[in-house]
Design a protein around this nucleic acid. Structure first.
Lengths: 344, 344
DNA sequence: TAATTCTACTAAACCGGTTTATGAAAACGT
DNA sequence: ACGTTTTCATAAACCGGTTTAGTAGAATTA
């Protein structure tokens, strides 16, 4: 198959391997026009393609980064990945994508494999575990950036949404539209899943700040698959919430399923607001008021920070970047009569 | 950082590099229990991790495949990618993902870069161009599998939807529900974009087979961004179609936008059926009747075929696999009065 | 006892580049 | 004319593994 090596080129051009290597690396300084041409011709003639693996071995750099995600099907993942890929293209880097399936064991395995493959850095949508592994990486100054989530206690760059702000946006918007009895829906809370905690905590905080009731029953946290069941219980009971805050796109989908199956009208019976701007938000009926994450900017930043770490390997103080959420006003929340601090 | 090499292990264990290598490759045949233990201890003690790059150089195999996609944000891409990634995980392979953005130039560049990086094979969601490049790969017996699209004239494995069947399913379903004046919506046709051509051709064929009128005006093919405008024209004219067949998810979205903006009621004013099962199909109102592609099976098959080519590098006759579409009946098409070959 | 076969392990070549130290020839300075 | 730079190019070491050929010494066979 492809067997042409630098030695072949050298022989044909009647120069040494070293000279060919210089040529390829554009170190023309002390190279005669004549030699340069001969090498170019030889390369052309043989259809020579350098073997990057060999180069990597010597240079100890692969121009490849690893990205480990906990859910490759999640829309946020894909969009951020897209931005990362684009940034890497510009720099001539390649991206190896691995899916941990939110399993810390797998995550650890991939970290090890990617390191063995000598990737130049790692961007991780982490499970939130494997603290020891990440701690070691940080100590060794291995380039590392967390996205979306992070590992508490590990001092590494992290690109996150300003989750509290996002929750506050939701609450403030609902409050200003006259809603008081507001519920939240989320997957099970776990201390190592940072955004979940922050969003729920931010939600609770915003409620109290706005002087709205914090009703325990209105916090629906359940496995995605049983959210519908839990909602059914909630709505079967006495007074259901007037509005629901969906912590992410997956829970929003479940809520939409629920309201559709139960003939609940949005926004008349129930107002809806969610984090993550789903692609169908403005063709749904009603169109969906959402809080969007700047996914592209987040991916770009993640890549940038990683490159920064890769080029200057000295110390650098890890930073946590909080990206601002944006409320996209549509029609799943509407003005209610009984309030006096909102508009119209 | 990580500098422990095999030589270090060898020295500490008081054996030769060769022996350590044997040990790592589990060639224990002629190795004393004693030696084995010493090596194990040394590895443990030094925290040694082998450098896969070095191994790759000698073995000429990287356990890495390249996947080039023309649109990383497309749902089909992601789902197939997911399956590919999973299959690779099982085999200990890594996946480098590149996004060509449907630009043949970029595609070519990535092929070259991935080859330089010595990937063991390539799965390509191709732009349909670069025939010469692919032809060379095939001649060199380089492992290659096309997915979704293919390059006409290049004899390589291809994993495709049975596009004609999919179009026929749509037409037959609409016909059996009493629809006669059926339109199709697609991005611009181009001979190198195989699925588009096949779906439209299959649609036309199915119409004639069912004895339904083939109306030129009802074929809306336009850049995604101008589909809404074209639809507006079509519906402003005399007799609009009773049903629309969307060739993929992107066109479906545009149609949904259009009907929403223009107060057209689905399915009463207009029936809708589309290829690609969008995630919101069963929470939309009405729920959407779609024709799903077996994306996971397709990805799995693509990986399998590639592995097949990777392990036995001899000749193998390239095959085109046509995967069967599945009609998922929901509510965007309903029974009409005036027909007599349908059910109900 | 000598020849042969196993066992346990190693030296050295190799993969295909990059890099460093070095050297010959040409150009320059005085 | 002779020493000094400068120009152009190369040999050889190196990266960190794998693999091949080979070799002591023990065990087996004749």
């Amino acid at each position: 198959m492809k067997k042409v090596t630098m030695a072949d080129v050298a022989k044909l051009a009647n120069v040494s391997k070293s000279t060919v290597s210089q040529y390829l690396n554009k170190r023309y300084e002390y190279m005669s026009e004549e030699t340069r041409k001969r090498i170019a011709r030889a390369i052309e003639e043989l259809g020579y393609q350098p073997n990057i693996i060999a180069r990597s071995l010597k240079q100890k750099t692969t121009a490849t980064i690893g990205v480990i995600v906990f859910n490759i099907l999640h829309m946020l993942t894909i969009q951020v990945l897209h931005a990362i890929e684009e940034a890497c293209q510009e720099r001539g880097f390649h991206v190896i994508v691995s899916n941990s399936d939110d399993d810390p064991e797998k995550e650890k395995k991939y970290i090890d494999m990617l390191l063995a493959k000598q990737v130049d850095g790692l961007i991780v949508f982490t499970t939130g575990k494997n603290e020891d592994v990440y701690q070691r990486l940080v100590e060794e100054r291995f380039p590392l950036v967390f996205v979306d989530r992070m590992v508490p206690g590990v001092e590494a760059d992290a690109i996150l949404l300003d989750n509290k702000r996002a929750a506050a946006l939701a609450v403030e918007y609902l409050a200003s539209h006259g809603y008081e009895r507001i519920g939240a829906v989320a997957p099970p809370l776990a201390s190592h899943v940072v955004p979940r905690m922050e969003r729920i905590e931010g939600f609770r905080q915003a409620l109290t700040e706005k002087g709205l009731p914090v009703i325990a029953d209105y916090f629906v946290t359940a496995e995605i698959s049983s959210i519908q069941r839990e909602l059914a219980k909630l709505f079967a009971s006495g007074r259901p919430p007037e509005a629901l805050f969906a912590i992410n796109d997956l829970t929003l989908m479940k809520i939409l399923h629920f309201v559709k199956n139960n003939g609940i009208h949005v926004p008349d019976d129930l107002a809806l607001i969610s984090i993550d701007d789903v692609p169908f938000a403005d063709i749904y009926t009603p169109t969906l008021t959402t809080i969007a994450q700047p996914t592209f900017a987040m991916g770009k930043k993640a890549a940038e920070r990683l490159f920064m770490q890769i080029v200057r390997k000295q110390k650098h103080k890890p930073q946590i970047f909080r990206f601002p959420p944006t409320l996209i006003e549509r029609k799943s929340v509407r003005q209610r009569g009984n309030n006096n601090d909102g508009r119209r």
